[in-house]
């Protein structure tokens, strides 16, 4: 039971990171292979504040989000004005640089040997609560004016600019929000595992997040969520083949992009309204066949 609970908490942690990457890659069209770094920054910020300075868990969570968002400015500011490749390369370099800094952080981060003694705060109900709040907030962001401008930039940066969208500022905002989500995920991770090591947040973690979003569908939040639940639990069943796990992720990235670039759900979203309509569809058809309420839906 504790094992299944653990897996579910890890799913929640990954979900926060995936929601962030989904906004950045799926909705804004910027590709990052450094999101594990924001998770790491969130995890260590929270671990230091709560574990060393004795602050409450909520402060740790918020500080993790804020610090990760702040760090994203370092690579966002010089690159959001340029074409996507520069951002992708800078993000890759940022991931490596963060790991190096944490590795050499001395007594503050515990270096490569790790950071021990983070208080345990992340329980399953708390993790699920945070993820639900995060998902609702993300849905509102995507449906807001900002979210629509992100999508406009993804579809055509020049046209978006011509429509009066400040593309640099919008891209920066999207990056900061997505980093904050990853930061919260990191903080949850730290307070679940109670032990941190820089190597936990290497490029493989970033790959996992990116592959999940691509697999779930670029531009579908619910698709990413479903993909995250599937892709986090499947490797648990196939533990003996753990060496092939990353091979699978790499292959998933390439084959999805080559064969089905829209991913699992494309830009389709599963909504409460849609589900209700889907479930009641057989009944409605009978009603409309009877002649009434044809225009209701």
């Amino acid at each position: 039971m504790a094992y299944i609970q653990g897996v579910m908490i890890i799913i929640c942690v990954n979900l926060m990171g995936v929601l962030g990457v989904s906004l950045l890659t799926g909705f804004t069209g910027m590709f990052s292979f450094g999101h594990a770094a924001y998770m790491a920054l969130g995890a260590y910020t929270s671990a230091i504040l709560v574990g060393r300075l004795g602050m409450p868990f909520v402060v740790g969570l918020l500080a993790a989000a804020a610090f990760a968002a702040l760090a994203s400015v370092i690579i966002g500011y010089p690159t959001v004005r340029l074409v996507g490749d520069y951002f992708a390369i800078a993000a890759l370099g940022f991931g490596e640089a963060t790991r190096l800094i944490l590795d050499n952080g001395g007594s503050l981060t515990g270096g490569a040997r790790g950071f021990v003694g983070v208080p345990k705060h992340t329980t399953l109900p708390i993790a699920i609560l945070i993820v639900i709040l995060g998902a609702i907030l993300m849905r509102n962001i995507i449906n807001s004016r900002f979210g629509r401008s992100f999508v406009a930039i993804r579809e055509d940066k020049l046209a978006a600019e011509a429509m009066g969208i400040n593309t640099a500022r919008s891209r920066m905002l999207s990056l900061a929000i997505s980093a904050a989500y990853a930061g919260v995920g990191g903080s949850m991770f730290a307070h679940y595992l109670t032990f941190l090591q820089p190597v936990m947040f290497d490029i493989n973690k970033s790959t996992e997040l990116a592959a999940t979003v691509v697999f779930g569908g670029l531009g579908s939040m619910t698709g990413s969520i479903i993909a995250c639940i599937i892709l986090t639990s499947i490797p648990e069943i196939f533990r003996p083949f753990y060496l092939w796990r990353m091979v699978f992720y790499g292959l998933a990235l390439v084959t999805t992009i080559v064969l089905r670039p829209q991913g699992l759900l494309g830009s389709f979203e599963i909504t409460l309204e849609g589900t209700r309509r889907f479930l009641t569809a057989p009944f409605r058809r009978r009603v409309s066949a009877g002649g009434g309420a044809r225009w209701q839906s």
Partner: peptide, 9 residues
């Protein structure tokens, strides 16, 4: 995305 996938693979 594809190129990064190939690198990881």
């Amino acid at each position: 995305i594809a190129s990064m996938g190939i690198a990881i693979f």
